[in-house]
Amino acid sequence: MVRQETEFNDRINIAIDGPAGAGKSTVARLVANELSYIYVDTGSMYRAVTWFMTKLGVGPELQDEVLQHTLNMVLELRPGSDGQKVYVDGEDVTPYIRSTQVNSMVSRYAQIEGLRTHLVHLQRQMALRKGVVMDGRDIGTTVLPDAEVKVFLTASVKERALRRFSELSDADDMSLEQLEKDIAKRDALDEQREISPLRCAEDATILDTTNMNIQQVVTAIVSFCRSQRDGEKIQ
């Protein structure tokens, strides 16, 4: 069945930011489905690069090599029946990019200025025609600073660790306690990096999802979008 176009007369861009494990990817995908918009998981792009570099044995300290390999790789985001699929040079790497190894290394690669510049350019190209829901850590501040709706999702470290633990492809290799420590460390790295640090845009709506289920969060964000369309002030 062909899904009908959203009720919105003017398509908008929606930026969803927040720390690791806040539920950005799941929520952004569902919001996109609700509005018949395109979902762009920017975090998966950095994860794909991280997976590829570890496969090649190119560490984040070798910035020139990382950038050269990134410029030469073909990175694609494709819709799938069970969510967005990530391809590198034609290979579906979706099952591999949320491993413990990738989780522990992605922040270090994400600090490489040339890499971020390249991926931000690709992300902005995806949003030119509007109708995009994009999630990450610097969407509202750097990638799409003019997005009509900006949401900053957050949750307690403990809650985010529980969520991430449930989705790890190799969860048996890491305890929940260790994962909680790693997420806290990841927060510090993301917030303190010099290039596009994690921070809430001044005009973003902060949404603490610790005690919310996924549908409640999706409903709230869709409501924000309706408020924007109608010219109402989002509280």
Results as ranks from 00 to 15, higher is better:
Met1Arg: 12
Thr6Lys: 09
Thr6Asn: 11
Arg11Val: 07
Asn13Tyr: 06
Ile14Ser: 01
Ala15Gly: 05
Asp17Ser: 06
Asp17Tyr: 01
Asp17Gly: 09
Ala20Glu: 07
Gly21Thr: 14
Thr26Asp: 04
Val27Phe: 11
Arg29Thr: 13
Val31Cys: 03
Ile38Glu: 11
Asp41Pro: 08
Asp41Lys: 13
Gly43Arg: 12
Arg47Ile: 06
Ala48Asp: 10
Val49Trp: 10
Val49Ile: 15
Thr50Ala: 02
Thr50Phe: 05
Phe52Thr: 15
Met53Tyr: 12
Lys55Arg: 12
Gln63Asn: 07
Gln63Gly: 04
Asp64Thr: 14
His69Leu: 11
Val74Glu: 14
Leu75Ser: 11
Glu76Val: 15
Arg78Gly: 07
Arg78Ala: 11
Gly80Ala: 08
Gly80Arg: 09
Gly80Met: 09
Ser81Glu: 05
Gly83His: 02
Lys85Trp: 04
Val88Asp: 02
Val88Tyr: 03
Gly90His: 03
Glu91Thr: 13
Tyr96Pro: 00
Gln101Glu: 15
Asn103Tyr: 04
Ser104Glu: 08
Ser104Phe: 00
Met105His: 15
Met105Thr: 13
Arg108Gln: 12
Arg108Leu: 10
Tyr109Asp: 03
Ala110Ser: 14
Ala110Ile: 04
Leu115Glu: 08
Arg116Cys: 05
Arg116Ile: 05
Thr117Ile: 08
Thr117Asn: 15
His118Tyr: 15
His118Ser: 09
Val120Tyr: 06
Val120Gly: 09
His121Thr: 15
Gln123Cys: 13
Gln125Asn: 09
Gln125Glu: 15
Gln125Ala: 13
Ala127Trp: 01
Ala127Phe: 02
Gly131Gln: 05
Gly131Asp: 07
Asp135Cys: 09
Gly136Pro: 09
Thr142Arg: 06
Val143Gln: 08
Val143Met: 13
Asp146Val: 05
Ala155Ser: 14
Ala155Asn: 13
Ala155Leu: 12
Ser156Pro: 00
Ala161Asn: 03
Leu162Pro: 00
Arg163Ile: 04
Arg163Asn: 06
Arg164Leu: 00
Leu168Gln: 09
Leu168Lys: 05
Ser169Tyr: 04
Asp172Asn: 08
Asp173Ala: 02
Met174His: 06
Leu176Trp: 11
Glu177Thr: 13
Gln178Trp: 04
Gln178Gly: 07
Leu179Gln: 01
Glu180Ile: 03
Lys181Glu: 14
Asp182Ile: 00
Asp182Gln: 06
Ala184Asn: 01
Ala184Met: 12
Lys185His: 10
Lys185Val: 07
Arg186Leu: 12
Asp187Met: 05
Asp187Arg: 08
Asp187Glu: 02
Leu189Trp: 10
Glu191Ser: 13
Glu191Cys: 05
Arg193Trp: 10
Arg193Glu: 10
Ile195Cys: 03
Ile195Glu: 04
Ser196Ala: 15
Leu198Asp: 09
Arg199His: 13
Ala201Gly: 06
Glu202Trp: 00
Asp203Tyr: 11
Asp203Pro: 08
Ala204Gly: 10
Ala204Tyr: 08
Ala204Val: 07
Ile206Ser: 01
Asn211Pro: 05
Met212Gly: 01
Met212Glu: 03
Met212Phe: 09
Asn213Thr: 12
Gln215Trp: 03
Gln215Asn: 06
Gln216Val: 03
Gln216Ile: 01
Val217Ala: 14
Val218Arg: 04
Thr219Trp: 05
Ala220Asn: 02
Ile221Phe: 01
Ile221Asp: 00
Ile221Arg: 02
Val222Phe: 11
Cys225Val: 14
Gln228Arg: 15
Arg229Gln: 13
Glu232Trp: 10
Lys233Asn: 03
Lys233Ala: 10
Lys233Trp: 03
Gln235Asp: 14
